[in-house]
């Protein structure tokens, strides 16, 4: 009986490498190349931008003028001036207003989708929000120009409807879907046992949300807001179309401003390759890159903190 079994066992070919082995190695290699190339491309982009901007940073750049002057006159042949304060103010005011618009909307939408809506309503709302995120930015710019502009002129009786208010609202609407989606994920990550525990103690729906769910999902919500800020900060086309593009520090919501991104988009085509103007625009690119990187990194760290807790 025992002998029979031994005879039936397979030959012990311990160093045998079959097809599965080769497929496994090949796939592992392909995935590795795919993964590493993403990192290489990002580093490549950074190196390229830095290389183009470096000539300006080590050459004509005057740090004090760059950050403190309002005069952006890169094409002047006699007296070129590279002050980006006005551009920073433009980006900051538009992004700031965008956040004022989108944070309450997004958090409200996320709370409604995550905590109140059920079944089909919830699913269709989620799809709808994701569809909103897919609207191209030029379409948003178009809405700013052709719908918001006359609306603002009508409502507030101002001569021009393009400016901080217009682009801030447009940008807020653009940032809302991504913020909503991420905030909703953050709420969904709060274990249901917390809600159950609080409800079993007699907490009302609102008490559960306010005292338990929001504090527990705090980090994810902060990350959602930060990513929304990053989105607004880097947005170009809609801002270019709806902000008016006058370089100044805005004093009213109807003032026209120019954002950093819009400046690059508008001027890079006209700047002679290798000129100071060209390099100054790349320096603006570095500034954007660094700030966006910091925002995203912060968001990432905050989310990691949420996972640890």
């Amino acid at each position: 009986m025992l002998a029979k079994r031994v005879k039936r066992s397979a030959p012990m070919d311990l160093d045998h490498r079959g097809r599965a082995w080769y497929i496994d190695k090949a796939v592992t290699f392909l995935v590795f190349v795919g993964g590493i190339s993403a990192i290489i491309f990002i580093i490549g982009i950074f190196v390229f931008i830095t290389k183009e901007g470096a000539g300006f940073i080590v050459g004509p750049l005057n740090v004090r003028e760059f950050f403190a002057s309002l005069t952006w006159r890169p094409t002047s042949s006699q007296n070129p001036s590279y002050g980006v304060l006005g551009l920073i103010a433009g980006t900051a005011s538009v992004t700031g207003l965008a956040m004022v618009v989108s944070v309450p909307f997004s958090l409200g939408a996320a709370i409604f989708i995550g905590e109140f809506a059920t079944g089909r309503l919830r699913e269709s709302l989620k799809v709808l929000v994701e569809l909103l995120a897919a609207i191209p930015s030029v379409v948003w710019g178009f809405i700013g120009l052709s719908i918001m502009n006359p609306l603002i002129i009508d409502m507030f009786d101002v001569p021009v409807g393009i400016g901080v208010l217009n682009s801030g609202i447009i940008l807020g609407l653009m940032a809302a879907p991504i913020m909503t989606t991420i905030a909703e994920d953050a709420l969904k990550a709060v274990p249901d046992t917390y809600r159950e525990a609080a409800e079993a103690m007699g907490a009302t729906k609102w008490q559960v949300i306010f005292r338990v769910v929001l504090p527990a999902g705090k980090n994810g919500l902060v990350a959602a807001v930060l990513l929304g800020v990053g989105r607004g900060f880097g947005e170009t086309m809609a801002v270019l179309m709806a902000s008016g593009n006058a370089i100044q520090i805005p004093t009213s919501p109807f003032d026209s401003v120019r954002a950093i991104t819009a400046t690059i988009a508008a001027e890079l085509g006209d700047a002679p390759v290798g000129s100071d103007h060209y390099r100054a625009l790349f320096t603006l690119g570095i500034l954007l890159f660094v700030v966006t990187f910091i925002i995203n990194l912060t968001a990432d760290l905050v989310v990691k903190g949420a996972r640890r807790a």
């Binding site: 079993a200 009302t204 527990a216 807790a309």
Partner: peptide, 28 residues
Amino acid sequence: SQLRRHVGMVFQRPNPLPLSIQDNVLFA
């Protein structure tokens, strides 16, 4: 809310809220 104040519940898996010990005791 009133019913659950008078009829408390303890669950299968301990489910303290993600708050301090003190805030947990004072929650209800």
